[in-house]
Write a protein that binds this DNA or RNA. Structure first.
Length: 293
DNA sequence: AATCACGTCAACCGCTGTATT
DNA sequence: GAATACAGCGGTTGACGTGAT
């Protein structure tokens, strides 16, 4: 016999989340921490499947998520990492802790794919393309060779790392030693205020929603006004229950999906990945520094 | 003002590897 | 060891917004 089902599949709600649902989910995470998603619907009364709850949290509600347009440096990192790792969005996202894999995936599909295609078909290096203009100092051929060399170096390092014995010279990093994964252990002990620091996101959302609702419902009956009332109350309560955010705190205590990526992995695998991660990180930031000059 | 086309992105779907019973 | 559910990932979809006609 296997496990009991996580939730009753019948009567599960789909579609966009309402602010009230968001608040219920955030409250749950504040109390129990992220994880145990199967218990969320029963604990909170949300009519959402656990999968949907996890997705909503990791892609939208969790603290430290940066929304809005991507910076040039972020773009370049995505381009480089995609060239190296392929469509491993979760892996790429682990190098951009403020972005979700979904965001990066969307950005790649809607912006960068086109940009690179355009790059291939036109002489972009003589024009002033926005982001990629930073490559102007290097000819396309040079840049491609550099990238290919870096990819080869990375692949070689990965092969070496994987072939090494566990007792080899791989540095004995703890998880928190990994420069690009400073959040992994801290995630587990994230404080209530840290969770709450996403209040801005939700307060904004609530405002938008109430605005939209008030527009939609302006001609409707009193029944809708009670919804409006409860939502406004929820917004007020939610907004007032949190302290202003601390962005440094965000950056050090986020990306649970990246952390989750390593849950259950063996020490050996972790060491191998660690070595590669450190190397990759160095490669990426060195490269970006060069390009930003 | 109406309609169409296109871009964006939140959310869903289906799959895989892992954990649990 | 088998059966089943969970967690996570990447691909895809569809609702919505915006600009062009």
């Amino acid at each position: 016999m296997g496990r009991p089902p996580c939730c009753d599949k019948t009567g599960v709600k789909k579609g966009p989340w309402t602010p009230e649902e968001d608040i219920m989910l955030v409250s749950f995470v504040q109390e129990h921490g992220p994880g145990n998603w199967r218990t969320v619907p029963t604990h909170t009364g949300l009519r959402r499947c656990s999968k949907s709850c996890r997705l909503r949290w990791t892609n939208y509600l969790r603290p430290g998520i940066k929304r809005g347009s991507f910076s040039d440096q972020e773009e370049k990192m995505i381009i480089q990492l995609q060239a190296l790792l392929g469509n491993k969005w979760a892996a790429i996202a682990s190098y951009l802790p403020e972005r979700t894999d979904n965001d990066i995936k969307n950005y790649w599909n809607t912006h960068l794919k086109k940009k690179l295609k355009k790059l291939e078909t036109s002489d972009l290096y003589s024009n002033d393309g926005h982001c990629l203009s930073t490559y102007n100092s290097t000819s396309r051929g040079q840049w491609e060779r550099t990238l290919q060399a870096d990819i080869n170096t990375a692949k070689q390092a990965l092969q070496n790392a994987l072939s090494l014995d566990k007792s080899s010279t791989i540095p004995d990093y703890t998880i928190t030693d990994i420069g690009c994964y400073p959040f992994i252990k801290q995630e587990a002990k994230m404080s209530t205020t840290t969770y709450a620091s996403n209040a801005e996101n939700i307060a904004k959302l609530l405002k938008q929603w109430t605005k939209r609702e008030s527009t939609n419902n302006s001609e409707q009956s009193k029944a809708s006004s009670s919804t409006q009332y409860s939502c406004n109350n929820a917004m007020t309560e939610y907004s007032s229950s949190f302290e202003p955010s601390n962005s440094d705190q965000f950056s050090q205590a986020t990306t649970p999906e990246a952390a989750g990526k390593f849950h259950g992995e063996s020490k050996r695998e972790m060491d191998d990945e660690t070595q590669l991660s450190v190397m990759l990180e160095s490669w990426l930031f060195d490269e970006n520094d060069d390009l930003l000059i």
